[in-house]
Computed example of a mutant assay.
Amino acid sequence: MARVTVWNEFRHERESDDVAEVYPDGIHAVLAEVFEAAGHEVQTATLDEEPDHGLTEDVLDDTDVLTWWGHAAHDEVRDEVVDRVHERVLDGMGLLVLHSAHYSKIFKRLMGTSCSLKWREAAETERLWTVEPGHPIADGIGEYVELEETEMYGERFDVPQPDSLVFTSWFAGGEVFRSGCCYRRGNGRVFYFRPGHETYPIYYDDDVRRVLRNAVEWAAPDDGPTPEFGNADPIEEIDTSDDRTVH
């Protein structure tokens, strides 16, 4: 069991009837159900409704994996909150970056690039191909997942080469896209997953939900040793009398 915090901008659902029809209680509520059904301890946070966008030090200290969905208000996320999330990822917290959160401050900070891409809204078919079938995030997923109506994201996707590429998408309009990218940043694991536009019911798809559950389990910190940094005492007996240091 992991402690999961589901963060959602929660603007489109309150401002658009089309979005509210698909996600009446917010995208975060649907995602929370996915992780709760898998036995995880889940809390939600949104941009406007809690102090510090719901991402206080106490909340993050109580989080093993943070999921992030944003679109229209990336610039409204305060920099001190981004700093706090960034530090926790480097310390070992997992991060799932979903769909349009490729432009979030935290993802761009972790990638060090613009994270730009091509896009088109035409309700077109997407085939999400499993290109790394042995990866834990692909467990239980077939050779491909077909989504009937999606927003197109196309290459070039301006991100660093992933440590592992689990999924690649093809769209009916002809484009392709790296849709399932794994990274290590410090002690933390980061997974970018492309599907999830707000006007299409993608987060109700069984295969998409399976990927999300797998990703939380992959990104959750394990019980490995905690590295120590800085000046270190020797493990073996050696002569430490050398006084030529400038530190």
Rank of each mutant, 00 (worst) to 15 (best):
V6K: 00
N8Q: 09
E9L: 08
E13P: 02
E13G: 05
R14I: 00
E15Q: 13
D17I: 08
D17V: 11
D17S: 14
D25Y: 05
G26L: 00
A38C: 05
A38Y: 04
G39W: 08
H40P: 01
E41W: 00
E41F: 02
A45Y: 02
E49V: 02
P51Y: 03
H53V: 00
H53K: 01
G54C: 06
D58H: 00
L66H: 07
W69C: 07
G70N: 13
H71S: 12
H74Y: 15
E76M: 11
V85L: 10
H86T: 12
E87K: 09
E87H: 09
V89Q: 05
L90W: 11
M93Y: 09
L95R: 05
L96S: 07
K105H: 15
K108R: 15
S114V: 03
C115S: 14
C115M: 09
C115E: 04
S116C: 10
R120Q: 13
E124Y: 10
T125I: 12
G134Q: 06
H135D: 07
I137D: 01
G140A: 08
G142E: 03
Y144E: 10
L147W: 06
E148C: 04
T150V: 13
T150C: 10
E151S: 10
M152V: 13
R156V: 12
R156N: 06
R156H: 10
D158M: 10
D158C: 10
Q161H: 11
L165W: 04
L165I: 01
F167D: 02
T168G: 04
T168A: 13
A172T: 00
G173L: 08
G173T: 08
V176L: 09
F177Q: 04
S179G: 13
R184N: 14
R189A: 10
F191H: 06
F191T: 02
F191I: 02
G196L: 05
H197G: 07
E198Y: 14
R209L: 03
R209G: 03
R213T: 14
N214M: 09
V216P: 03
A220D: 07
D222C: 12
T226K: 09
T226Y: 12
N231Y: 11
A232H: 15
A232Q: 14
D233H: 10
E236V: 07
D239H: 07
D239V: 07
T245S: 15
